[in-house]
Design a protein around this nucleic acid. Sequence first.
DNA 1: TGCCAGGCCCTCTTTAGGGCCTT
Length: 209
Amino acid sequence: MKHRPANTVIVLDFETTGLSPNQGDRAIEIGAVRLEDGQIKDRFQRLMYPGRRISGFIESYTGISNQMLSDAEPASKVMAEFADFIEDFNLVAHNASFDSKFLISELARTDHNSAYLFACSMLIARRLYQDAPNHKLGTLVRFKSLPTDGTFHRALADAEMTTHLWLAMLEDISTRYGIDQADFALMQKLGKTAKHSSHQFLLKHAVTG
DNA sequence: TGCCAGGCCCTCTTTAGGGCCTT
């Protein structure tokens, strides 16, 4: 039987042709990290052909060219492989609402289930790091002095930076609130909050239940 | 370069508007 650590999450990031699958945008790259008990155990990165040319803006923004995509496998094939990679583990992304809608949209083109639970590192960071200049991923990486190879807006590089941010937040929450180990359920709760609660109240409430 | 959308959150709010964040 396959070993399944209790505290395993998949941290993922999509590069896409634009902001909205409802407007016809497609994924062009998926990058992800399998994090088991705080250790990176596996990585996944694939380009995928979206069925049409991408804009010059996206080429410039991501560094992914039309030439690179012309040699890539179709999205449906890549997403089927990715579904096998993520199994049924919980998912983490920076601004998870964005990656969630692309995951649902692309998996809908395959016969794979897309009923995953997401936690959003951006929403948690907004509560935890209120003195950060802003809560863009790159800013938070610099703010927390997290590891980076200097690559931004590529799927695996962004997923790895999000992984380090996730680990830093787990540690900071445990240290700040004196709990043994922050887990996915707590982090997901911190990303879904009632309005009009102060951040301090919210964190303490989430920790104490 | 920044628009497209959408969820979240703040405030000059809740019968609303606008900024943030993702590509």
